[in-house]
């Protein structure tokens, strides 16, 4: 069995539990994933399964890419997943939300929203400087090192710069509900990325 599933983040809403508790949930639209290629330990160095997600019309793909799909329909995304036993997976096999069950612990990974060029307070959680009493630093970095020794700034010093738009994995999430007919998964809490973004639902034992 695969260790994960691709999905689109639709957005967040709330649902009521039976006892009336309102739960914040993220709606994920999953879909059938078709196995396109099997990678084996001997040939490729790892037991991975390459799957395709979201069908696209054939005119959208060029010949070399179409050749990779062979008999399978072309898809928008190609991703790899780990698999316990590569022999029980066949090319053309379809995986869907039945991979997961309600109440299961999962991790969701995706590309976070880009924040652009940000300062150190937002980017690294620095405290900044006092706002008043003659201070002029406010949201500045503060000291970035010592003086004549080492007379340089250490590599990897946390500074301002591009923030966000990087892969984020949110652990400790839980599946609240699965609507198998619509291939919709409701996850308690927030998942990384913008609405409409591609996310990966991973099995997790946290």
């Amino acid at each position: 069995m695969l260790n994960g599933l691709l999905a689109r983040k639709i957005g967040m809403t709330q649902i009521f539990e039976e006892d009336g508790t309102a739960l914040p949930v993220t709606v994920l639209q999953s879909g059938p994933m078709t196995v396109i290629q099997k990678k084996t330990l001997e040939k490729d160095g790892c037991n991975h399964v390459q799957v395709g997600f979201e069908a696209i019309p054939e005119r959208k793909v060029n010949k070399p890419i179409k050749g990779h799909y062979k008999e399978q329909a072309p898809t928008r995304f190609l991703r790899e997943f780990e698999v316990e036993n590569i022999d029980e997976v066949e090319v053309g096999q379809v995986f869907d939300v039945s991979l997961f069950s309600e109440g299961e612990s999962i991790a969701v990974s995706g590309n976070s929203k880009g924040k652009g060029f940000t300062g150190v307070m937002k980017r690294h959680g620095f405290a900044g400087q006092p706002a008043s009493h003659g201070h002029r630093g406010h949201r500045g970095t503060g000291s970035i090192g010592q003086c004549a020794t080492p007379s340089r700034v250490f590599k990897g010093k946390k500074m301002h710069g591009r923030h966000g738009n990087s892969k984020v994995t949110q652990l400790g999430l839980k599946i609240v509900k699965i609507l198998a007919d619509e291939a919709v998964v409701l996850v308690k809490g927030a998942v990384p990325g913008p609405n409409g973004g591609l996310v990966t639902i991973l099995k997790s034992n946290r």
Binding site: T13, I15, L179
Partner: peptide
Amino acid sequence: MSTAMEMVEQSQL
């Protein structure tokens, strides 16, 4: 809004 979202929200009403 997407239909999946509508469906989830409508089911709560």
